[in-house]
Design a protein around this nucleic acid. Structure first.
Length: 156
DNA sequence: GACGATAGCCCTT
DNA sequence: AAGGGCTATCGTC
């Protein structure tokens, strides 16, 4: 059976968000789609609704099974550590490296780039010591996500 | 070997 | 101050 895909539109990012679920309870991947083509929104899962509220400004931290077993041990460590970063907080690439007992700062950046489930695994909260750092989906997306969280972090 | 979503140092304007 | 070059570092491909 094919995986199920939910779709919502995020006004603040001006992107459709495609959330792909396994047939089980796990989250498979999350993609950003430019609004060139009109997509039909589809909200069948709880997490989809939570995401929608997240974009409305609710300080939600997602906790849900994700399957990243196909990634390398190092990449899994990086992403696991990334999930611990709380809403509205940021840490640097080097701090994250230190937490997992490595000095491979740049490898951390590379691993984050492989995050199959951005936002849910909040890789946008990892920034450079000076400056914002990179983001595979585009810096503007990262900036907006951080702004959104900055504004609403006081609602915690 | 080369390449990074880095960081730090040292230089020049 | 701010920006550019150089290098250490280390996990992937």
């Amino acid at each position: 059976m094919a995986n199920e895909i939910d779709i919502i539109y995020s006004k603040i990012l001006d992107r459709y968000i495609e959330i792909e679920y396994d047939t089980g309870t796990k989250l498979h991947s999350l993609r950003f789609v430019r609004p060139g083509k009109q997509l039909i929104e589809k909200k069948t899962r709880d997490v989809t609704i939570e995401l929608e509220r997240y974009f409305e400004g609710e300080p939600i931290d997602f906790s849900l099974d994700v399957d990243i077993s196909y990634l390398s041990p190092f990449e899994q460590k990086v992403l696991a550590e990334t999930r611990k970063i709380k809403y509205g907080k940021t840490i640097t690439y080097s701090e994250l490296a230190e937490k997992i007992g490595s000095r491979a700062v740049r490898a951390v950046g590379n691993a984050l780039g492989k995050n199959p489930i951005p936002i849910i695994i909040p890789c946008h909260r990892v920034v450079a010591k000076k400056g914002i750092g990179g983001y595979s989906e585009g810096i503007d997306i990262k900036t907006r996500l951080l702004e959104l969280e900055q504004i609403n972090a006081n609602n915690l």
